[in-house]
């Protein structure tokens, strides 16, 4: 069910007719919520996803209309809101690493921890908890939100080269922090001077 009106047009129209904003919500709410839920669990995700769209609505006048798809912009807002919850995010990851029970997964019935059997989940949680915030955001926008490098650059307001180098560093750290579990190093090569 593809709506022919691009997000940029809906956002422009919503400046004079606020209800025109509704399709932007309808198109992207689930994706934004799904991502936030994976980051902070269902309850905080309810709150943050709702806030994301309220903030987007209030900030719609500043939307760059040369970009038809609002998804990167919305994920950027969600990421900013997540920063306020960084402590909670890290606490949950540490709890998982310590106890082997992921508080986020634990909020759902019947969802199994796919990494539990190998004990990989705990290691990964510890690794994520130890990464710098800037790298975690790039890494998870890439791995969980399926944003491309340019989209992540748009979302975070940084150059594409920065995205690439942050992702590269984050991947390297994850590898280092997974003791004895050698993941294959098939990440894209990085060129010098990209981290502008």
């Amino acid at each position: 069910m593809e709506d022919p009106i691009p997000d940029s047009a809906a956002l422009a129209a919503s400046l004079t007719s606020p209800a025109e904003f509704a399709p932007v919500f309808d198109r992207h709410y689930d994706a934004v919520h799904t991502y936030l839920q994976r980051r902070v669990g269902p309850d905080a995700a309810d709150e943050l996803a709702a806030q994301t769209f309220l903030v987007a609505f209030e900030g719609r006048a500043r939307y760059d209309r040369s970009r038809p798809d609002a998804r990167p912009w919305l994920f950027g807002i969600a990421t900013n809101l997540l920063l306020h919850h960084r402590r909670q995010v890290v606490r949950q990851l540490r709890a998982y690493a310590r106890t082997g029970v992921d508080p986020v997964l634990d909020a759902f019935e019947g969802v199994e921890d796919r990494l539990d059997a190998a004990g990989l989940g705990r290691d990964l949680a510890a690794a994520l908890a130890g990464l710098p915030a800037a790298e975690v955001e790039v890494l998870l926008l890439y791995a969980w939100a399926d944003l491309s490098y340019p989209e992540i650059a748009t979302a975070l307001g940084v150059p594409v080269g920065t995205v690439r180098s942050r992702l590269w560093r984050a991947r390297g750290r994850i590898r280092e922090l997974l003791p004895g579990r050698r993941a294959s190093a098939d990440a894209p090569p990085i060129r010098e001077g990209e981290d502008r």
């Binding site: 709410y29 689930d30 919520h33 799904t34 839920q37 994976r38 995700a45 309810d46 996803a49 992921d102 986020v104 997964l105 759902f108 969802v111 199994e112 796919r114 990494l115 990989l120 989940g121 990964l124 949680a125 994520l128 890494l139 998870l140 890439y142 791995a143 969980w144 991947r171 994850i174 590898r175 997974l178 993941a183 294959s184 190093a185 098939d186 990440a187």
Partner: peptide, 17 residues
């Protein structure tokens, strides 16, 4: 698995909103 594939398994399969 590489780290990205591994990460994609992390908290995978959660229900939607």
């Amino acid at each position: 698995m590489d780290e990205i594939e591994l990460l994609r398994e992390f908290r995978a399969g959660l229900p939607g909103p």
